[in-house]
Computed example of a mutant assay.
Amino acid sequence: MATNGRADHGSTQSEVIIRATDVTVRFGSKAILENLSLDVRRGEILGFVGPSGAGKSVLLRTILGLNAKQAGTIEVFGIDYERASTDERLAVEQRWGVLFQHGALFGSLTVLENVQVPMREYLTLSPKLMDELARLKLDLVGLAPDAADKFPSELSGGMIKRAALARALALDPDIVFLDEPTAGLDPIGAADFDQLIMTLRDTLGLTVYMVTHDLDSLFTACDRIAVLGDRKVLVEGPLDTMLSFDHPWVKSYFHGKRARTIATDDQGAAGAAGPQGA
């Protein structure tokens, strides 16, 4: 059943495409993640949330192979990335796209050239075809044609996010990783970005792993939520599970004043729309 306007993809798509099992990550003697386990299912938008500094981005970077882990396994598309051969790693890397915090665009390249970076890394295409594909990706994320020739310094915050998303989609991935995608955006821009993610998921059949602290995104866009705390996943499930979970931080986060305001606004909008078929 859909809730808050979301399609319940998580309950109908059971195939696990990312499986982290008993993962431990330490920096020096400090444990950031300890015996953490988490599954990500095909076709869902998973919101990964937790206190600042808890290790949300650390887990994302560990899944991507950018951080070393001291224990546990991470399988992506059924392949243990750490033990995979070079060819297997290349095959996996072409099936994911990443939007890093703040976009992480190359300042010396135009937007079009930024989108083409994964194509140049993994594919052998003519310059003309790369131009056409990159412009298609920019159109897909809602950027005007003239944005292609601009440099990142000439873009607004929202345009940077969309350009970075276009680059993440450059290789037609199965899964996209989003690290704080709405951070720094005004409420309207953030809502538009959430809607874009939901539309792309439904249109392209994407799986979305979203690290976020944005309650609006969690209430509006996510099929399932996982909460990081005490160096592991405290709870995972739909929004109703978060609202009923008895843990101080989870209760404060999902029952705080701002959360109640969002929930009230959402219920009001649903009531104003009236029953289906009315």
Rank of each mutant, 00 (worst) to 15 (best):
N4P: 01
R6T: 12
H9E: 14
E15K: 08
V16A: 07
V16G: 05
V16Y: 02
I17N: 12
R19M: 05
A20K: 00
T21Q: 14
D22N: 13
D22P: 08
V23A: 05
R26L: 04
R26P: 02
G28F: 01
S29D: 10
E34H: 14
N35C: 01
S37N: 08
V40L: 08
R41N: 13
G43A: 02
F48T: 03
P51H: 11
G53D: 06
S57C: 09
S57P: 09
L66W: 02
N67I: 00
T73Y: 07
F77E: 08
G78T: 05
G78I: 04
I79H: 08
Y81V: 12
E88W: 01
R89N: 07
A91K: 03
A91Q: 06
Q94I: 04
Q94P: 03
G97I: 03
L99H: 04
L99C: 07
Q101D: 04
Q101A: 02
H102P: 00
H102R: 12
L105A: 02
S108A: 14
V111L: 00
N114S: 06
P118D: 09
R120G: 00
K128E: 11
K128M: 09
E132F: 13
E132L: 15
A134H: 08
A134W: 05
L140T: 14
L140E: 13
L143Q: 10
D146K: 08
D149W: 12
G158F: 03
M159T: 11
R162A: 07
A163M: 12
A163G: 15
A163P: 13
A164Y: 04
L169K: 10
F177M: 13
D179F: 06
E180W: 02
T182H: 05
D186I: 10
I188V: 15
A190Y: 14
D194E: 15
L196S: 15
L196H: 15
I197D: 00
T199A: 15
R201E: 06
T203C: 02
L206F: 12
M210G: 04
V211H: 03
L215G: 04
L215A: 05
D216A: 12
D216Y: 08
S217C: 10
L218T: 02
L218S: 00
L218C: 04
D223H: 15
D223K: 09
A226Y: 02
L228E: 08
R231G: 07
E236F: 08
G237R: 10
P238M: 09
T241S: 14
M242P: 08
M242A: 12
S244T: 14
H247M: 12
H247F: 14
Y253R: 08
H255W: 12
K257F: 10
R260W: 06
T264L: 14
T264N: 13
T264D: 14
D266M: 12
Q267T: 10
A270T: 13
P275M: 03
G277F: 03
G277Y: 04
